[in-house]
Amino acid sequence: MSAYLLRRLTALLPVLLGLSLLAFSLASLAPGDPAELLLRRQTGEPPSAADVTRLRSEMGLDRPFLVRYARWLGHAVRGDLGASHSSGASVSRTLVTNLPATVELAVASLLLGIVIALPLGVLAAVSRGGPLDHVSRIVSLVGTSIPGFLLGYMFILFFGVTLKLFPVAGTGGLSHLVLPAMTLALAEAAAMARMTRASMLDVLGEDYVRTARAKGASRRLVYVRHALRNALNPVVTLVGLRVGRLLGGAVIVEIVFARAGIGTVIVDAIHDRDYAMIQGFILFVGIVFVSANLLVDLAYASLDPRVRLGSSEERAAVAR
């Protein structure tokens, strides 16, 4: 297992290096001058050439691309992602400070999504073609096809404005978390429910399930212990893959619900063309994404011993 882990971690290095170069290039190659933009935002009027030159120098934008990249990467590996061009604050500290609110939202959405998706997927599978299956399909269709921001407004209108059950916007207690989490969770639940249903249907046709039934196991035991447990592998993969998407979704949801978090930070950074913050964010999300994938693979490995045997020789040896 440790050899497998080491192999996977080594494989991540070029991925992260490529990601850092991509993040740095994308932000730098975009048209426009962030110094100019920043000054305009602060005065409301176009700045003078002298002010722009001064600020470009302060921001280090007058240096060659590769020099800036090497310098940034050198600091990044030590956890220092530089200073925000627009606020002057440390990028790492800003991300870390705002991370808990976003993680809170992402975790709540994921949990809520799982709580909705698993029963829905299982029920849809066991009553294939029945009313529950149709309900599941409709819920999934709605969750997948309605954009997050629109769903957010709909929830605000119904639960916030009409029923006055939850506050419309802001960051605070649990009451502020419910609507944003529901908004994000529905899309997650839709995908997970469909995957659970498909996976369950596959597993329910397996011999060992038929055997369990023949032995007189209760329906609940067959579905939960024998079928669901084995049907969860692809769902776990999906959950891992959705983590990055969840962070992306959180950006939109945080804006709609005026929640503090990394989403609002990055939207402001994009408006201000704050290269340092954008680069830091891309790298950060990339690390989260590849880490989540690694965890999924490790979870797979613990569920299925064949996964640990990475090389073809090892697999061949086992086959013999």
Binding site: G170, L174, S175, H176
Partner: peptide
Amino acid sequence: VACGGNDSGGSSSG
């Protein structure tokens, strides 16, 4: 708790 209305003060919606 969730339906307990708006939190006040602090970093909440105020």
